[in-house]
């Protein structure tokens, strides 16, 4: 159990307890937005090396959605925020 994620509600937990949804950076376009904007939102993703921001679901714990900022090269975790708090405070 190499990767430990510090859940804001449950504390330090192994990554096996979580399920990763994916990139948390794309913002959902307005319903009436252009087809290009929706195509980009649904299908187009960067595949960066280094710092990434992702949605993680703490499936086996508090069952809350979290925003995890981590380095996908070194596995260092910089910040974990509840997704609701992150949504309230913009980029938390």
């Amino acid at each position: 159990m190499a990767s430990l994620i510090t859940c804001p509600h449950c504390g330090r937990r192994p990554k096996e307890e979580f399920s990763i949804r994916g990139d948390a950076v794309p913002e959902r376009p307005a319903p009436a937005a252009s087809e290009e904007a929706w195509h980009a939102y649904v299908y187009l993703r960067d595949n960066p090396r280094g710092n990434i921001r992702e949605y993680w679901h703490h499936v086996a714990g508090c069952r809350r959605w979290l925003v995890v900022e981590r380095d996908n090269l070194t596995h260092a975790v910089f910040a974990v925020t509840d997704a609701r708090e992150a949504a309230k405070g913009g980029t938390a």
Binding site: R13, P14, E16, V59, A60, G61, C62, R63
Partner: peptide, 8 residues
């Protein structure tokens, strides 16, 4: 809540 023997 936690994983207990790989069960939530």
């Amino acid at each position: 809540p936690m994983m207990i023997c790989r069960v939530a």
